[in-house]
Design a protein around this nucleic acid. Structure first.
Length: 653
DNA sequence: CGAGTTGTAAACAATA
DNA sequence: CTATTGTTTACAACTC
């Protein structure tokens, strides 16, 4: 009972990462930078068109590259490198981030930040992809339409294109042309080009998600996209993002809301009129986009655009599945059933509860409701369970996962809905999950019950067999040194000793004790405390940590010794995410396992200091700050600390 | 084959 | 007394 309530009360901090901000400015800049357009900043028509053109091309190019790469084996990143690598997520691998993970870590971004960044990149990428698709569709449509509706203007396509860029073969129209078309159809609505500049590849892509509902809306063609970034993209996978986005926009539009209005701009296809307030927008809407032939025609175009996009989406989806099937499926085990999800879950479960799990579990228990698209689901499911891992018998454990697992946040986030609704066992160890739960919390500390809640809230899988997994959770908390119990006034909370956590990882990975020592476990401090700092240190000392298998890029066998990637016997979950995982935070990627640490005890727990102020309301929140010193620490700790502290810097090389 | 991980199950103790 | 929370053991399944 408590749990239930807790489940509800707890905030979804896990989704915080969605809150990314703007798209990478680099993307935007690229557009203007490349083009000669800079010359015409003055919002002359020409410049506007050019800008648009550039931006579109840019987006197309990026997206195209990705698409091309993905299918091909050439993909250097997530590819299945060799060992059972989980399926790379097509969508998740922004071409933009080519730099090695460890480089990223150099930035010392705190985990959250990194995640955000990651997410942002991801979003940008997806946006581009969508944009590309949209453009293609639109081009087709326009192509068709122009025959009847108008004559083409004619700026040479691709004129300002970047070196390697070319328009999609099939596209008959250049972005500029499209733009022009819209304008023509619109009859000259558009305002200045400001929009373009701001937005860059920005917002239009996202709209895909909303398109369906309001077709006439946002999915506007290239031009009419919302100006700035709201974090644009709704990454197709997480509805959450969409919601967020919607909310955000609502927010901004304090006055009123309208799908065609956002960020002070009219989002009517081809129209970018600036409307300072909602009232003005309404006026504009009624005046400029009243029911007339022109509007009707635009509406029709938009409908077609949407349809085309949908078709395209389904095609891409098919392609994705085929790719995944190709990459992951073991020759031996062709998962015949299209519904890996449930299958899997049941299989997995079987292990846990041999008899318990009803063979016929609500196979689609959650699925039906789950918003997740096959796209989102696919990656995970099949790879995780589907594949070889689930050898007929339930005996197998899917521990692989964690070896790779990185930060769940990155892994989970994108598939948040999936895990939340699908009864699939997450490919992470309990330790990893627990850590994530704690890290997701505002205070970096959770009570046992809160941890339980996180599990049930985040994974449908853990809504069953509570006794089993809860016991496992407790067991893990007690067993692993990285989990530190801190006494609190109202009880006790669990925190993560990142140092320990990393230490373990490193051990696992390197296998070399010396290295392990590098990790300054003692810097001490605490738990949640400077995660970033710690992360940085960890990274520094173990550059490879971040890279291990993910991405497939470079997992140098050398250091890793054996454990990392290859570990997973079967198919790891989605490595794709790993891609960003690396970015994410150094802290995350490597995963851990339990107790390997030699004999000493946890290095410091910072306990006292960091104690929590009860985040939850479910209890008595009266005492906001319950500072308590933890009793946990035993003398032994200190020893370690010193020990390690000493070497630390030196070892780092 | 042995060591180390991870997941389960279960016994127990301390508390609420 | 019961339910939770924690700690420990034991064991099986895996991986290296």
């Amino acid at each position: 009972m408590m749990q239930e309530s807790a489940t509800e009360t707890i905030s979804n901090s896990s989704m915080s990462q969605n809150g990314m901000s703007t798209l990478s400015s680099s993307q935007l800049e690229a557009g203007s930078r490349d083009g000669r357009s800079s010359a015409g900043d003055t919002s002359s028509e020409v410049s506007t068109v050019e800008l648009l053109h550039l931006q579109q091309q840019q987006a197309l190019q990026v997206a195209r590259q990705l698409l091309l790469q993905q299918p091909g084996s050439g993909l250097k990143s997530p590819k299945s490198q060799d060992k059972h690598r989980p399926l790379p997520s097509i969508i998740h691998v922004p071409s933009t981030r080519r730099f090695p993970p460890f480089l990223q870590s150099v930035f010392d971004l705190p985990q959250q930040q990194q995640q955000q960044q990651l997410a942002a990149q991801q979003l940008v990428f997806q946006q581009q992809l969508l944009q590309m698709q949209q453009l293609q569709q639109q081009q087709h449509l326009l192509n068709m339409q122009r025959q009847g509706l108008l004559s083409l203007p004619g700026p040479a396509p691709g004129q300002a294109a970047l070196p390697g860029q070319t328009l999609p073969p099939q596209a008959g129209l250049s972005p500029a042309e499209i733009q022009q078309l819209w304008k023509d159809v619109t009859g000259g609505g558009g305002g200045g080009g400001h929009n373009l500049e701001d937005n860059g590849g920005g917002g239009s892509g996202l709209d895909l998600s909303t398109n369906n509902s309001s077709s006439t809306t946002s999915s506007n063609p290239a031009k009419a996209s919302p100006p700035i970034s709201h974090h644009s993209i709704a990454n197709g996978q997480s509805p959450v993002l969409n919601h967020r986005r919607e909310r955000d926009s609502l927010h901004e539009e304090t006055g009123g809301t309208h799908p065609l209005y956002g960020h002070g701009v009219c989002k009517w296809p081809g129209c970018e009129s600036i409307c300072d307030d909602f009232g003005q927008f309404l006026k504009h809407l009624n005046n400029e986009h009243a029911l007339d032939d022109r509007s009707t025609a635009q509406c029709r175009v938009q409908m077609q655009v949407v349809q085309q996009l949908e078709i395209q989406l389904s095609k891409e989806r098919e392609r994705l599945q085929a790719m995944m099937a190709h990459l992951h499926m073991r020759p031996s085990e062709p998962k015949s059933s299209p519904k890996p999800l449930n299958l899997v879950s049941s299989v997995t479960m079987s292990k846990n509860l041999p008899s318990t799990s009803p063979p016929n579990l609500p196979q689609t228990p959650t699925t039906p409701t789950a918003p997740i698209t096959p796209m989102a689901a696919m990656p995970q499911v099949p790879s995780v369970l589907g594949g070889a891992n689930v050898p007929s018998m339930g005996a197998m454990r899917r521990r692989h996962s964690d070896k790779y697992s990185m930060s769940l946040s990155s892994e989970i986030a994108p598939n948040y809905e999936f895990y939340k609704n699908a009864d699939v066992r997450p490919p992470f160890t309990y330790a990893t999950l627990i850590r994530q739960a704690i890290m997701d919390s505002a205070d970096m500390q959770l009570t046992l019950n809160e941890i339980y809640s996180w599990f049930t809230r985040t994974f449908a899988y853990f809504r069953r067999n509570a006794a089993t997994w809860k016991n496992a959770v407790r067991h893990n908390l007690s067993l692993h040194k990285c989990f530190v119990r801190v006494e609190n006034v109202k009880g006790a909370v669990w925190t993560v000793d990142e140092m320990e956590y990393q230490k373990r990882r490193s051990q696992k990975i390197t296998g070399s004790p010396s290295l392990v020592k590098n990790l300054p476990s003692s810097l001490g401090y605490g738990t949640a405390l400077n995660a970033s700092l710690q992360a940085a240190l960890a990274e520094t000392s173990l550059p490879l940590l971040g890279t291990p298998g993910f991405m497939g890029s470079g997992s140098p066998p050398g250091l890793l010794g054996g454990s990392p990637p290859g570990t997973m016997s079967g198919s790891p979950p989605t490595l794709m995410h790993m891609t960003h995982d690396e970015l994410n935070g150094s802290l995350d990627h490597l995963d851990t396992n339990g107790h390997s640490s030699p004999g000493y005890s946890p290095p410091v727990h910072m306990p006292s200091v960091h104690v929590k102020e009860e985040p939850l309301n479910m209890d008595d929140d009266d005492c906001p700050m319950s500072l308590v010193t933890t009793a946990n620490h035993s003398p032994e700790l200190d020893d370690d600390r010193e020990l390690e502290e000493g070497n630390l810097s030196e070892d780092l090389e």
